[in-house]
Design a protein around this nucleic acid. Sequence first.
DNA 1: CCGAGCACCTGTCAGC
DNA 2: TGCTGACAGGTGCTCG
Length: 287
Amino acid sequence: MPELPEVETVREGLSRWVTSRRIATVEVRHPRAVRRYLPGAEHFAAVLAGRTILDARRRGKYLWLPLDSGDAIVGHLGMSGQLLVRPTEAADETHLRIRFTFDDGGTDLRFVDQRTFGGLAVSEGGATLPAEIAHIARDPMDPDFSDTDFVAATRRRRTEVKRALLDQTLISGVGNIYADEALWRARLHGARPTEALTGPAITRLLGHVRDVLGEAIKEGGTSFDALYVNVNGESGYFDRELNVYGREGLPCRRCGTPIRREAFMNRSSFSCPRCQPRPRTAARPTR
DNA sequence: CCGAGCACCTGTCAGC
DNA sequence: TGCTGACAGGTGCTCG
């Protein structure tokens, strides 16, 4: 779910609502929420009590909160995770997994996650960049992202272009929605082999990725239901701007041809049959 | 190195 | 009304 724009929306909320606050207590309500933190739930709570949150940062779909100890809370929302800032007296959410209270009272920080694919961990010494996410590439909104390196690395891959966009070690933050939207804008079918794309074509595609992510951030992200919300529980509005994702059978906004849906990696890909013709052959060696 | 398949979960919706 | 199967924004493992 949440892809870069949704995670960025959450990061902005955390930056505003939890920066400079000192953690009082931590309750882990479900052990799966901290499964990536090997010392376990009790240690998770103990090491965080009394720490002050200094900032809220993001790379791709990962978030981290640098602490005054030099450690960080690192997290991923998975498919259904939410970080909510709620009044302390508000009733527990059905899928409340972790609750943080603060010395100043007022509001809690709650990790709520229906499907439990997400989770939080403490990254020792991870304030600058958690080691747990060192394998994740920079995302295209990062000022230090290198367009030329991305183009070169993509052309070296022998894979399909949508797979490349979803590969978080090549470019991070792009998920199923924004990959389909960027490919539609670039008029490329996701099955096009990367090695057969020219440098300028990949550069143009990258520009569309950056455009669609930026536009979605302005709208507070995409949400089709109450699962994808900011820290105050509010949905974003980018679903109104989607051109292909979820629009099977509806007319392409460029040419009117009904949008097609194809199976892809146990989910779906949406594209325009006319603007984005399938490649004639599967990936093959170029020489 | 790469992809296919699957595991990890809960909930919703369509169809029977 | 219930049951069943398909499907959902992600990651990460094994296997070939």
